[in-house]
Each structure stands twice: as structure tokens, then as C-alpha cells.
Simulated scan of single mutants.
Amino acid sequence: MVNSRMTVAIHVLCLLAYVRGTENVTSDYIAGSVNTNPVVIRRLLASLRKAGIVSSQGGSTGGWSLSRPPESISLLDIYRLLEPGDLFAMHNKKPNPRCPIGREIQDSIGVYYQRAEQGLERELAGVTIADVLGSVRASIGE
């Protein structure tokens, strides 16, 4: 199933990288940037915190910040954290083994799925939050 969790996570991490070292950012502020409910952001941030990518500080000056430099957070890190499992799913039920196609389809197509996923992972491994933020900054003229 395709969802937007990874896109939202990249948005959040770019925002935190953008303000890095100047302020902690509240989940309400982040939710306003993403244009979603703060609860969605808090759940996502909890996953990112558990993985050691972000940290939080309580109190009146509290909020969220990156735990690691943006250059060290690859899109593959985020992908593996938020999209566990195979990118492509096989049938929910085992196809009919008496059918010549049913008997072999999963093994045959699995090879192509594996190559596609490896290509995706190679591409994501080569891009960091710093890279994405650099693209955003270039787009806004910074």
C-alpha cells in the first residue's frame, strides 16, 4: 500500500535541519508546515526518536530537534524505518500449484521485484536530508 509517511518524515526532517541549532520546534508548528493534525506528527516523531534520528525536550522552550547531522540521515534510513517489509507483495494466497503459471509465477516475478527494490534502495542510500534541504533552499532562492 502506498502512503505518505515517508514524504511527511522527509518534510519534518528537512524542517528540523533548516532550523538546526537555532531552536527546538513544536509538533504543532511542524503540523502547521505539513498541514496535518499534530497527532499524526507526534506519532511519526515518536518513531523517528526511537530510531535515534530526532530528540525532544520538554518545557516552555522545548520541542523537537535532529539528533544526527542531516548529512548522516539517508532517505534509505527513513524508508527502512517507515516502510518495513517488501515493496512488492505477492498473492495473499498461494497460487494453484497444478497450474503451470500459478506454480512458477511468484518465483519468476520475485526476481524482478528484488532487482527493482535493490535499485530503489541504492538510489535512496545516495540521498540525504541535507541533499533534499539543499534542493529546497535552491528552489526558494537561499
Rank of each mutant, 00 (worst) to 15 (best):
M1F: 00
M1H: 01
V2R: 05
R5G: 06
M6F: 00
M6S: 10
T7K: 04
V8R: 09
I10N: 11
I10Q: 04
H11D: 05
L13Q: 04
L13I: 02
L13V: 02
L15T: 02
L15F: 10
A17P: 07
Y18I: 03
Y18H: 10
R20E: 08
R20Q: 14
T22W: 08
T22C: 10
E23A: 12
N24Y: 15
T26M: 15
T26C: 07
S27V: 11
D28R: 11
D28E: 12
Y29C: 14
Y29E: 15
I30S: 10
I30E: 13
I30N: 08
G32V: 05
G32N: 13
N37V: 05
P38W: 02
P38F: 08
P38M: 06
V39S: 07
R43A: 07
L44V: 06
L45M: 09
L45P: 02
A46F: 14
L48I: 04
L48G: 07
L48D: 13
K50E: 15
K50F: 15
A51C: 10
I53L: 12
V54M: 08
S55C: 13
Q57R: 12
G58N: 13
G58R: 12
G58D: 15
G58E: 15
G62D: 14
G62L: 08
W64K: 11
W64N: 10
W64I: 06
S65N: 10
S65I: 05
L66D: 04
L66R: 03
S67G: 15
R68A: 04
I73L: 12
I73S: 05
I73K: 01
S74V: 04
L76I: 03
L76V: 05
D77A: 11
D77I: 02
I78W: 14
I78K: 07
I78D: 10
I78R: 11
I78L: 11
L81A: 08
L81D: 12
L81R: 09
L82K: 11
L82T: 10
E83K: 11
P84V: 06
P84W: 13
G85R: 03
D86W: 09
L87Q: 05
L87F: 14
L87C: 14
F88Q: 15
F88M: 15
F88L: 14
H91C: 06
N92K: 15
K94W: 04
N96L: 01
R98W: 07
P100K: 08
I101M: 13
I101H: 06
I101W: 03
I101N: 12
G102M: 04
R103D: 05
E104N: 07
Q106N: 03
D107G: 02
S108A: 05
S108I: 01
I109D: 03
V111M: 04
E117C: 04
Q118F: 08
G119S: 02
G119V: 01
L120D: 03
L120W: 02
E121Q: 01
R122P: 04
R122D: 05
E123D: 09
E123I: 09
E123N: 03
L124R: 00
L124P: 00
L124D: 01
A125P: 00
A125S: 05
G126Q: 05
V127C: 02
V127F: 01
V127I: 00
T128F: 01
T128M: 02
T128A: 01
I129E: 01
I129M: 00
G134T: 01
G134V: 00
G134I: 03
G134Y: 00
S135K: 02
V136S: 08
V136D: 11
R137G: 09
S139F: 12
E142S: 13
E142G: 12
